[in-house]
């Protein structure tokens, strides 16, 4: 019951985020909305794990959080530079460009 209510709340929030993703107006608004949508999806997967009595779902939630992060970075890099291969400096502490 409690979990069902939480799922419903998440659905409402996801609809709002989706509305912003449709409205735009800039591409960054859409990326922000999609990122926020992804956060809610992670929570939704976690709640569904409890709702379905399958705690394995936590692995999927963690994975989705990960993919959401990397996906956002990739999309932003693409919109910023129009290319994924742009050099970004070495990882070592003082070696950044």
């Amino acid at each position: 019951m409690m979990f069902a209510a939480a799922t419903a709340a998440l659905c409402v929030a996801m609809l709002l985020a989706l509305l912003r993703a449709c409205l735009g107006p800039t591409v960054y608004d859409r990326v922000l909305a999609v990122n926020s949508f992804g956060t809610k999806t992670v929570l939704m997967i976690a709640v569904l794990g409890f709702l379905a009595g399958r705690p394995d779902f936590m692995d999927i939630a963690l994975l989705y959080a990960l993919i959401n992060f990397v996906g956002t970075i990739a999309v932003l890099k693409f919109f910023r530079y129009g290319d994924m291969a742009r050099p970004g400096g070495r990882p070592a502490a003082k070696g950044g460009d």
Partner: peptide, 12 residues
């Protein structure tokens, strides 16, 4: 849920 919904409300 309250904060999630109103955060999303702010997003709109």
């Amino acid at each position: 849920s309250f904060f999630i919904i109103f955060g999303a409300h702010g997003l709109v």
